[in-house]
């Protein structure tokens, strides 16, 4: 790794998490460099989702530190991390099911004056202007995600893959610059999967958003990610380009019985 002045977008060092006697994460250290799409792979139960939960502030680690652009954010609650520009999506998408797709996006934008207490009865004009700007921005994000035609549909009416896109949209609305994606491809049909992959790549290329992606679909990882970390039984067992990681004997062993086709 070349020495750089800028700290990585995200760095995890020595993170440990135990659930009772079970060690879910054992001194895990990894880095996500600024502007990269980094992959996190590993067999089921490796601790990937636990690590995500710890990075995003949902679980406190038993040891170790999380740094966001060099700043120690270990143990900060999710909403504070959200305000710092770190957003996550869930393995099983979580949306406000009784609100429309558009409203789901609008509610994720950072606080504006309309949310404060006396404002709805005062400053009406300013609120209306803000509302319109917010609506336009949300529609723009939906356009980008190819979901504009579903703007007024209730979020519960979308397919699983579309829900994943709405989650990504919510992250974009919040102005996140580092986004953790938990299995964006799981249960998504091939066509939509291509679309999701292109959207992620475009957001990274055009807006400079950094992604850390948990994914089992190694072809997708190969397409998207410049660097991959492999976790197994709570430890980092390999890191490097997808080609290097795929050929690593330890990785092959961890995915016992699975064979990789290196394209």
């Amino acid at each position: 790794m070349t020495a750089r002045a800028d700290p990585p977008a995200l760095s995890v060092s020595g993170v440990t998490k135990r659930f009772g006697g079970f060690v879910a994460l054992d001194c895990v250290s990894l880095e996500v460099s600024e502007g990269s799409i980094t992959g996190l792979i590993g067999p089921n139960g490796a601790g990937k989702s636990t690590l995500f939960a710890i990075i995003a502030g949902f679980l406190p680690p038993d040891g170790g530190t999380i740094r966001l652009r060099g700043e120690d954010v270990t143990g900060e609650p999710p909403w504070r991390l959200h305000a710092r520009g770190l957003a996550r999506t869930f393995q099983i998408p979580r949306l406000f099911s009784r609100m429309t797709v558009l409203e789901n996006l609008m509610v994720a934008a950072p606080n504006q004056s309309g949310e404060r207490l006396p404002a709805p009865w005062l400053a009406r004009r300013q609120i209306r202007r803000e509302e319109e700007a917010l609506r336009a921005r949300a529609l723009g994000v939906l356009e980008r995600l190819n979901l504009a035609r579903h703007a007024e549909a209730p979020a519960s009416a979308l397919s699983g893959g579309q829900k994943k896109l709405v989650e990504l949209g919510r992250a974009l609305m919040s102005g996140a610059s580092v986004i953790l994606l938990d299995e964006p491809a799981a249960g998504v049909n091939r066509t939509l999967l291509r679309e999701i992959a292109e959207i992620i790549a475009a957001l990274n290329r055009e807006e400079g958003i950094t992604f850390l992606v948990i994914e089992h679909d190694l072809d997708l990882v190969a397409d998207l990610c410049t660097r991959v970390w492999c976790l197994a039984e709570g430890r980092v067992i390999a890191a490097g380009s997808i080609g290097e990681v795929r050929n690593d004997p330890q990785v092959a062993e961890a995915y016992l019985g699975m064979t990789f086709d290196v394209h």
Binding site: A56, F58, P78, W79, H82, A83, R94, L95, F96, S97, R98, M99, E103, M106, V107, A108, P110, N111, Q112, G114, E115, R116, L117, A119, P120, I127, E130, E131, L134, R170, S174
Partner: peptide
């Protein structure tokens, strides 16, 4: 029609998700 109302509906839909999405839950409760 207002952002405050939307925040209230979001909180009644899924309070934890609202909290982590940066909805000012204390203000919504007030």
């Amino acid at each position: 029609r207002t952002r405050a109302g939307r925040a209230m509906r979001a909180m009644s839909d899924d309070p934890d998700l609202a909290r982590i999405s940066g909805v000012a839950t204390a203000a919504v409760i007030r």
